[in-house]
């Protein structure tokens, strides 16, 4: 069964523990600027919105990679970057319409959410249940899916 991250902005308090957890999991340091999940803070509206890759089916990042460095796991649907193959060309960073794959100048490679191999640190550390990792059929990504379809240049080809 595929599982997905569910980001419930209504429960987010903007504590950024997810960012710290992500940074520590992937980089071994507590540095929110190195996190692959980002909490957007809308001060005037008092809203906090956690945001990261949804492992979308269209996988623009994977489709455009000129060297095949991004692959999709058939069992989990996770799109992950093979750092040894990535040349750092950054074409995926402009092709992803969500802006959720980014270049790391320190490593010279791109990076994105990889669901921590099946136990996402952000969900584990979220104190309010704003980030959960559950059966993707229940995840309700309608908004992002709508967006995805609007942006898709080849919806038929993607199926």
């Amino acid at each position: 069964m595929q599982k997905a991250l569910v980001l419930d902005a209504g429960k987010c308090t903007g504590c950024k523990q997810c960012e710290l957890a992500c940074s520590f999991e992937h980089e071994g340091i507590f540095n929110v600027s190195r996190s692959r999940i980002r909490v957007f803070i809308f001060e005037h509206e008092a809203r906090f919105v956690p945001y990261t890759c949804t492992q979308c089916d269209q996988a623009w990042c994977m489709q455009v990679c000129p060297v095949g460095a991004i692959t999709s796991d058939a069992a989990t649907g996770v799109k992950s970057v093979n750092a040894a193959t990535c040349v750092g060309c950054k074409v995926c960073t402009i092709a992803c319409p969500f802006g959720t794959i980014n270049y790391n100048a320190i490593t010279g490679k791109v990076e994105k959410c990889d669901l921590c191999g099946g136990d996402p640190a952000c969900a584990r550390e979220c104190p309010t249940g704003a980030i959960t990792f559950i059966d993707s059929n229940l995840a309700g990504y309608e908004k992002m899916q709508d967006w995805a379809h609007k942006t898709d240049t080849a919806p038929q080809a993607a199926s």
């Binding site: 992803c96 967006w147 609007k150």
Partner: peptide, 16 residues
């Protein structure tokens, strides 16, 4: 300013 830059594609191509 490369961070999250892909949203530009999303905005333009979806004519949001």
């Amino acid at each position: 300013l490369p961070e999250h830059i892909g949203v530009l594609r999303g905005f333009i191509q979806s004519r949001l």
